[in-house]
Write a protein that binds this DNA or RNA. Structure first.
Length: 381
DNA sequence: CGTACAGTGTCTTACAGTAC
DNA sequence: GTACTGTAAGACACTGTACG
């Protein structure tokens, strides 16, 4: 005797579909939503450690794309990523949005999902629906963090830093979290292992800051987009894709300079668009090299073309790049001159032509070369 | 009461196929 | 092209039973 399930339909009043194993499992997931979903049998799914890691990361960084999920959490297997995300959605742990075509599917945890990923030692975060305007920046940050994480580097999201620094103490909560993340706090195991010692920056009120970077006269805090803990030391990562006013940028750079001198931040890694790169590094002028802000502050030699092959500089600048195709597209649209901006679809066709061309140039440089557009127009006719 | 083991059902995964 | 569904194979967890 087969089981049936009643299903509403716009084709008629109701019709009955056989209760297959799939449908039973989906019904179980929907009937067992919440923090504990997937922890025991009969919930219609069992959560895996990859699922929990995804929830934790997406919660800390705000959102990731389904492509990121596949690449960094499910061994590059698209089908598995899609299925796991669907399970977590039915279980009420994850939400998805496909409002931004270029981003594909973007996923972020619900309040239950955040709670499910909570682990001892990690700061508690509230669920947040990511805003669409800031999505490119958010996904670029997440992607850079995922790449580092894949190399075994511990990363701390801005939200996590803010959460621990919000504590109403003189910095103990942040210090505890820094130790937990492997920062070489004096006397910690990491300090012994790596033979280094990291101390906090002291802000205007005499309070130790382990993650926030004090800037300006009033002593506000600047937050890196994320922090990587490399060999016990703190590397601040800044994903700058919008040109900041000079005074604002200087303020941030001066803040970092003090933190670096305090033995707090070991290095600042700037991943930037060409306009920001010029602001930081300077540019070729009529008679030699015109200094940028980094030379003004003594992070680069004055009047010289920056040489990034020198290792161990406290400030490093490199071009922001997306690996995810959609992220790459959105970034491309930001850096290309208006006349070369186009739809996602057309952009992908151009990218294919570039790949076949096996040009030594980067895609954007290739596109800006005068004869490329003529060539592309000729092909589309 | 504890252990070993077979039987059974549950869950994951990859592949093939379908809908829009 | 993207998202979803169905299926088969295998891994795994749970249950019941036999046995000491």
């Amino acid at each position: 005797m087969p089981e049936y399930v009643e299903k509403a339909s716009d084709m008629g009043p109701q019709f009955r579909v056989p209760m297959t194993r799939k449908r039973r499992a989906a019904a179980a997931r929907r009937g067992n939503q919440g923090v504990a979903s997937g922890t025991v049998r009969r919930h219609g799914w069992r959560r895996t450690s990859a699922d929990e890691q995804l929830l934790e990361f997406a919660g800390a960084f705000g959102a990731i794309t389904l492509r990121h999920a596949a690449e960094y959490f499910y061994g590059g297997v698209w089908e598995t990523a899609r299925k796991r995300v669907q399970f977590m959605r039915e279980a009420g742990l994850l939400e998805r949005s496909d409002n931004l075509r270029w981003a594909g599917t973007v996923v972020y945890p619900t309040a239950s999902g955040m709670a499910a990923a909570a682990a001892p030692g990690l700061p508690e975060l509230r669920a947040l629906v990511p805003s669409e305007e800031r999505m490119l920046h958010r996904l670029l940050v997440a992607e850079a963090a995922l790449r580092m994480r894949a190399r075994g580097v511990r990363v701390v999201a801005e939200r996590q830093m803010r959460a621990v620094e919000r504590a109403n103490d003189s910095g103990q909560a942040a210090e505890t979290f820094a130790r937990f993340c492997g920062v070489a706090v004096a006397g910690s195991p990491a300090a012994g292992e790596f033979g280094v010692s990291v101390s906090p920056t002291v802000d205007g009120n005499g309070r130790a800051r382990w993650f926030g970077v004090p800037v300006g006269m009033a002593g506000e805090l600047h937050w890196p987009d994320f922090t990587a803990i490399v060999g016990g030391r703190i590397v601040a990562v800044e994903m700058e894709i919008t040109h900041k006013e000079r005074w604002r940028m200087l303020q941030v750079l001066r803040g970092y300079k003090l933190s670096i001198e305090a033995g707090h931040v070991a290095q600042v890694l700037w991943e930037v668009t060409p306009d920001v790169q010029m602001q930081l590094e300077g540019r070729r002028g009529a008679d030699g090299w015109d200094d940028g802000l980094l030379a003004d502050l003594g992070f680069l030699e004055s009047g010289q073309v920056p040489d990034w092959s020198v290792k161990g500089r406290p400030m490093v600048v490199r071009a922001a790049q997306g690996r995810d195709e959609g992220v790459r597209y959105a970034l491309s649209q930001k850096t290309l001159p208006p006349s070369l901006r186009c739809s996602y679809r057309l952009w992908r066709q151009w990218l294919q032509v570039w790949e076949q061309d096996a040009s030594a140039l980067e895609f954007e440089e290739w596109l800006m070369r005068p004869r490329t557009m003529t060539q592309l127009r000729a092909m589309s006719q």
